[in-house]
Design a protein around this nucleic acid. Structure first.
Length: 566
RNA sequence: GUAUCCAUAGCUCAGCUGGAUAGAGCAACGCCCUUCUAAGGCGUGGGUCCGGGGUUCGAAUCCCUGUGGGUACGCCA
């Protein structure tokens, strides 16, 4: 649709000389109401220059415009000039592209725009994967695919929280409250139990915290026993995470977590010193920042912090991947941390500091209050996914009991519902987790979109026509209202992906997928597809398969599968 | 205290780079399966766009300010 706007601006520029073609293009808008055309040009702006009433300007202007071929009609309503695109031209232009690109529709064929590193999921070792971790994981995965779709090469980095004082705590807790056998048997559950116990005990015995810091310092100094325990805890956790990633079908290009930077931080601290950015405050090494609390580089015992590792990681990523953008998908609560991180890198004199992007998302809470691993108020992601899968199975038994591979479909739909729900709204919004909401598959939900895809697929299957035979269609057979609405929507795919990338907002894709589904369902309701008239059937099937490609790719961008039947 | 995010229908939210009567879904009620999957379609009711100023021909949208809520602010990540 964007290209028509450009063409229209060019046409108008022949008549309007007061402003530039670019300004004209900016003024052209899409009317709120479909009845008022595909594009509108408001004339208020010229009232002052021409000293005439806007409606008069509009009507005079309208008379001067020579109708281009791609425009069906031009109308003048008050101060607006409304343009209606020629339906046949529009439908032909869009369907030609979709039917040529087929399953690649909307997705870039090359990835030559450069590298983008995306830091997402990044769970903390030794803590179970809960609802709160889902957001970073699915949003990051979606952004990865969105940027790939517009031609970047993405590098997905799981910046594991596998270093830091928490391991000192875990080592202390293990020695005090657990045994080798218990950890081997119960895995992460046992690690969680002793971690929670540590915090309970530390409330009354602050010396425990000191002991923990001591143990972390040992790790940084290469103490073998401490490192062996650390590695053991890490392996146990990773096994657990891998299982969740497998269920979600999400993968990473790098698992270089915080520990990976252990031997790279000295050099960076040295660099900060050399650039005279550091000062000592209360025994700690810090970088002073304007309008912001200082960034802590080392503690008074000399061990490093989160920020130290993130600065090091950013430098490493720039050197390794020469990224065009380096994106961090983390909670909004980490706003200050990233503001500090980016400013420090800017102060170091790196011009690419401007390419560092924090994509913040809102908090997930539960009806029982905020999620807290320490207090045990958690809802494990696996439990939610399993619940959703079971609910889907029930629905399948009720609606489509003869379906083959029910198990797999239930998995794809149940998980799709959870992922979709997480990204349907602007990611900045807080979410209060609710079983009722997440297990509701009616209305604007993942299953609704998937259902639409399955429906379309079903018609195609029953038509008995091969996809490759759907060509040379008579466009004039599908320019009724519902068909054209659907075609227009399909034609918006590329610019929708661009917008989602620009705003780092997967929900734009999710809403787009719903729009396509809505348009298709109306089209489906109003038009019989499998009719006797062969030409009409073929033309409508062309729309059916165009919808299928679009929905499948839109859902793919969100990390959601499209089962052919459900 | 400072910073930051949020505030639109009963609920969850779109719309926010200013434009024509503010839109969806859920929930409620009613209609549509002898016809391609009813996880669908259609309809009805439902609004002080948090309050107050300002900019503008025009503000839910931009600016200022107040209120309410969330979050973060040195040795956790």
């Amino acid at each position: 649709m964007e290209n028509y706007k450009v063409k229209l601006a060019k046409e108008l520029a022949n008549i309007i000389t007061d402003i530039t073609e670019e300004e004209i293009e900016e003024l052209i808008e899409v009317p709120t109401n479909k009845e008022m055309g595909d594009f509108a040009f408001p004339c208020f702006r010229f009232a002052k220059i021409l000293k005439k009433a806007p409606p008069l300007i509009a009507s005079e202007l309208k008379e001067k415009i020579k109708k281009p071929d791609f425009i069906e009609k031009i109308e003048n309503v008050n101060a607006y000039i409304n343009f209606y695109l020629d339906k046949t031209t529009l439908a032909k232009d869009i369907l030609d592209i979709v039917l040529a690109q087929k399953e690649h529709y909307g997705l870039a064929q090359t990835h030559d725009k450069g590298n983008i590193t995306i830091d997402y999921s990044s769970p903390n070792i030794a803590k179970p994967f809960h609802v709160g971790h889902l957001r970073s994981t699915v949003i990051g995965n979606s952004l990865y695919r969105i940027f790939e779709a517009i031609g970047y090469n993405c590098i997905g980095i799981n910046h594991l929280g596998d270093w830091g004082t928490q391991f000192g705590k875990l080592i202390v807790a293990y020695k005090k409250y657990s045994t080798k056998e218990a950890v081997e048997q119960k895995g992460i559950q046992e690690l969680l139990r002793i971690y929670v116990k540590f915090h309970d005990e530390a409330k009354n015995d602050p010396a425990l915290e000191d002991l923990a810091r001591e143990n972390f310092k040992k790790m940084e100094q290469g103490d073998e026993e401490a490192l062996a325990l650390w590695k053991w805890f890490k392996d146990i956790s990773l096994k657990e995470f891998e299982r969740v990633y497998k269920i979600l079908d999400i993968s990473f290009d790098s698992f270089n977590g915080e520990a990976f930077y252990n031997d790279k931080m000295d050099k960076v601290i040295q660099e900060l010193d050399n650039k005279n950015l550091t000062t000592i405050s209360e025994g700690a090494k810090i970088v002073e920042l304007e309008n912001m609390s200082p960034c802590l580089i080392t503690k008074k015992d000399g061990s490093t912090l989160y920020a130290t590792r993130d600065i090091t990681a950013a430098l490493y990523r720039k050197n390794t991947y020469d990224f065009k953008k380096n994106i961090y998908v983390t909670a909004l609560a980490q706003n200050l941390h990233f503001a500090q991180l980016f400013t420090v890198i800017e102060k170091m004199g790196y011009s690419w500091a401007k390419d560092l992007v924090h994509v913040p998302f809102g908090m997930v809470s539960m009806e029982t209050g905020s999620i807290s691993t320490r207090s045990g108020n958690v809802l494990l992601l696996e439990d939610i996914l399993n619940e959703a899968i079971n609910k889907t199975k029930e629905i399948i038994e009720e609606k489509n009991p003869t379906l083959e591979n029910k198990e797999q479909v239930a998995q794809e739909v149940g998980i799709g519902a959870i992922i979709f729900d997480d990204m349907y709204n602007s990611i900045i919004k807080d979410i209060q987790f609710s079983w009722e909401k997440v297990l509701n598959f009616d209305g604007e939900t993942g299953p609704y979109v998937q259902y639409t895809y399955a429906r379309a697929n079903s018609v195609l299957r029953k038509s008995g026509i091969n996809i490759d035979d759907i060509k040379d269609i008579d466009i004039n057979l599908i320019i009724d209202e519902q068909s054209i609405n659907l075609i227009k929507q399909i034609g918006l795919f590329s610019e929708t992906i661009n917008e989602a990338a620009e705003k780092y907002e997967p929900s734009i894709i999710a809403r787009y997928a719903v729009n396509i589904a809505k348009c298709f369902n109306k089209f489906y309701h109003d038009n019989s597809i499998l009719v006797d008239d062969n030409e009409l059937k073929k033309a409508r099937l062309a729309l059916v398969i165009s919808t299928m490609y679009t929905i499948k790719n839109a859902l793919w961008l969100l990390g959601i599968k499209s089962p052919k039947q459900m």
